[in-house]
């Protein structure tokens, strides 16, 4: 539970993960922002108006998955690093994830890395598709993972064999 150990529950996630129908329609943001904190850069960031703030900056952002095309601008902008993009239409049994990443060294496109879940446990491997460095120093990593893993994976660890 978030308040006790910092991990979202299945119930928390259920409310923000895309519906099966939305999944089929391609890339979409997953906003894992579960607390009312005074913050609104995600709403400023979205070029399509898919993320809006209710009247009060301390409320949680309101997300319209139908307006979202999964561009990922919000992923790099969220101060809490709490927004991810998932694209289940990426391949037959492969999903594309975009995650915010603030560690050095950065992986390189083509690297195979260890995929970690919300508790930091290794759940498989991911292939780095693209490394999108940004001016604000939050890098957006594009990861190809099995579709079954896409809901769980939220971080990576560089695998020993990737970097000498």
């Amino acid at each position: 539970m978030l308040a006790i150990d910092g991990t979202a529950t299945a119930e928390d996630l259920q409310a923000v993960l895309p519906t099966p129908d939305r999944r089929r329609r391609g890339a979409v943001a997953v906003i894992e922002c579960f607390q009312e904190i005074p913050c609104n850069p995600c709403a400023d960031a979205c070029p399509r108006g898919a993320i809006t703030m209710p009247e009060n900056i301390s409320q949680r952002p309101v997300f319209d998955p139908d307006k979202c095309n999964g561009c990922g601008v919000c992923v790099g902008r969220c101060p809490g690093l709490a927004i991810f993009v998932v694209d289940y239409s990426y391949g037959e049994d492969t999903a594309l994830l975009k995650i915010p990443y603030e560690f050095r060294p950065l992986p390189q496109a083509g690297d195979s890395v260890t995929a970690l879940d919300r508790q930091g446990a290794a759940v498989g491997s991911a292939r780095v598709v693209k490394v999108q460095e940004q001016k604000n120093r939050t890098t957006i990593l594009w990861l190809a993972v099995t579709a079954a893993m896409a809901t769980a994976v939220r971080n990576i660890r560089l695998s020993g064999e990737v970097r000498a």
């Binding site: 978030l2 910092g6 979202a8 922002c33 101060p79 709490a82 919300r118 508790q119 930091g120 971080n155």
Partner: peptide
């Protein structure tokens, strides 16, 4: 309970750091 923002807590949790309240 965790007093900090949950998003900050989640950032260290997904690096495998336990948070023991």
């Amino acid at each position: 309970r965790i007093g900090g923002y949950w998003v900050h807590a989640s950032k260290i949790r997904r690096c495998g750091v336990p948070i023991l309240t």
